[in-house]
Design a protein around this nucleic acid. Structure first.
Lengths: 348, 348
DNA sequence: TTGTAGGCGTTATCAT
DNA sequence: ATGATAACGCCTACAA
């Protein structure tokens, strides 16, 4: 006398209810249960209710692995966990991650992390693994920069992705991207300084020709010209607080009329702020990124809508994840100016 | 004349190589390929090499979904993406995430994020979904607090997890946890102040009886007693910069001898720093969490070994993920004191 | 409207 | 040392 019902071999874990379990309880076939869940309209109401009751009673949860195996879709997107930099700025990933997880959950997608690798080649290989292994269907690329080989690399591998950061220097977007309009931010920063009574607004930027830096500079330059604020004053230095302090000290020494300084980052802004304090000069320093540091110092700073950026990335990805193939789109988001109440200790 | 080889129906995506593909190329069975990958010792060296060559040639990548379906293991752990708080402190999750992803990768585990929910009940339900659906095998709980219902909830559901944060008030650890020895940190902070010449070291803490707060207070209190620094001075206020500034201002006014102030957080430290500056008082403020804000102000601050904590969480989880059932363990990590060179603008 | 059949890619068992 | 076979849980196509 043999047993009819085949048993699982491993049986190591307490078996959760499956479609079969529910079907047995409801007295229908597996398929009917599946339909009740996905195509309720194709079932007789009575059957549907009966099945749904059984679903609730058993506490049935679909197996994502089985679903993925059958549909060839992981329903997950990958994003990099950056090696934390000891600096001040850097994209505040926390907010981005949360935004992604939030939007993902709304649309039935999980977010999986992969660790930052020593170089772009290693990262590409890892992402390839992640996608090929089915850990994720798409990737969100963060912290993209000008000479970034990753977008092209991913495109070449046929990986679905969206970048947080513009593909600078290209007109037709070669891939989906979301970015924040830095020029708009520094323009607002400059306007803010003028509104507060500044007459001479300088810019403290980065030396390299990175597009992000040029973008941020441009908003300031444009506004200075529009407002006829006189000869533009600008200086550049590495993204380092001490360097910024030195630069600013020198700048203040040779420009007695400088009122305000728009900075390309909060790191620079901190240095500038220190220099002004040391020199006993009244200088309205505006930062970029609205980190807690700027808030702590009472400095206004340009705030990127990070959460919205994350949401947008997912939304750009969604049609592709559904299998559609729309032309690549780029979305430029507007930043806001975060102005701490109270203002800096030094005045203004 | 019918085709022998059954074709996939969907055929929507370019099919990657499978065990079957490799097996065909190597002229062996699927199972032999699988063995070559997992139990090389059970194969004739010649066969093994032949198979591995075929693996490389085809660029074969195992399907995680199929593996998971067969083994009932997701090889993934879940962690919460916190809703970003506008405050200064808060666990710097970036570092934790990266550490987790890093350690996970080393051990063949992915990290999946889930979005913070409005309340603990919702979070428990979500985690339950994540685990039951097979999106992850275990959870790392962050930001646990005293009256946290999540550990008990997870334990009740039989979810494998590790908490970053101690189960206060219990002797035998009811579950795996990793935490940082706050008392050790504030003790070091106090010693540091003494070494720098402070005679009277106060403490600025939190009003609630949260264990974390008591822990941090304890290290200071102990050291003050050991060093015979006289009558302990302490004051508490909400974890808010403005409140801290008010408290400290009042404290400074009534205690002319106060030299240094150990704080339970960088948020408090910022307020204390402002108060001291406003009052023109020489006060060595020491923070907790070593956020960029403390660094920006030049304040020493207790630094939690966040990355190490993440690694340890994963390591505690590993045996359970392997199916073993060791007694719960707790690990207490030692913080360090981050002392910015240069020191604060105000002196010291 | 419902049920049956087969396949998704892997691993485990057991026979050879 | 290798291979045949049978699940794992779900989904799509098609038959009833």
């Amino acid at each position: 006398m043999t047993t009819d019902v085949p048993r699982a071999r491993g049986d190591r874990a307490a078996q959760g209810p499956t479609l079969e379990t529910v079907a047995a309880l409801a007295g229908v076939s597996r398929q009917t249960v599946s339909n009740a869940l996905h195509r309720p309209d194709r079932l007789a109401p009575a059957t549907r209710d009966k099945v749904m009751a059984a679903v609730r009673e058993t506490g049935y949860r679909p197996s994502l692995a089985a679903r993925q195996l059958a549909t060839r879709r992981a329903h997950a997107i990958a994003v990099r966990a950056d090696q934390p930099q000891d600096g001040i700025s850097g994209l505040v990933l926390d907010a981005f991650f949360h935004g992604l997880a939030e939007a993902g959950q709304r649309h039935g997608y999980r977010v999986v992390l992969y660790a930052q690798q020593p170089d772009e080649a290693a990262e590409l290989a890892l992402v390839d693994d992640v996608i090929a292994g089915g850990a994720a269907d798409a990737v969100v690329l963060t912290a993209t920069n000008v000479h970034d080989s990753r977008p092209a690399g991913l495109a070449a591998s046929g990986v679905t992705f969206c970048a947080f950061g513009r593909p600078w220097g290209v007109d037709e977007p070669p891939h989906d991207w979301v970015d924040v309009d830095g020029a708009l931010g520094t323009a607002a920063a400059t306007e803010h300084a003028v509104a507060r009574g500044a007459r001479r607004v300088g810019f403290l930027g980065w030396p390299d020709d990175a597009a992000t830096g040029r973008d941020r500079r441009e908003g300031w330059a444009r506004t200075v010209a529009e407002r006829a604020l006189g000869e533009p004053v600008e200086v550049t230095c590495e993204n380092d607080t001490d360097a910024a302090e030195r630069c600013t000290t020198a700048l203040l020494a040779r420009d007695a009329g400088l009122d305000a300084l728009v900075c390309a980052s909060d790191t620079l802004a901190l240095g500038a702020h220190r220099a002004a304090q040391a020199a006993g000069r009244r200088l309205l320093v505006v930062g970029f990124d609205a980190t807690p540091v700027a808030a702590a110092l009472g400095l206004p700073s340009v705030a990127q809508p990070v959460r919205e950026a994350a949401h947008t990335c997912l939304e750009l990805l969604l049609p592709r994840l559904r299998g559609e193939d729309p032309p690549p789109r780029g979305v430029l988001l507007a930043p806001t100016l975060a102005v701490p109440r109270g203002g800096p200790a030094g005045g203004w």
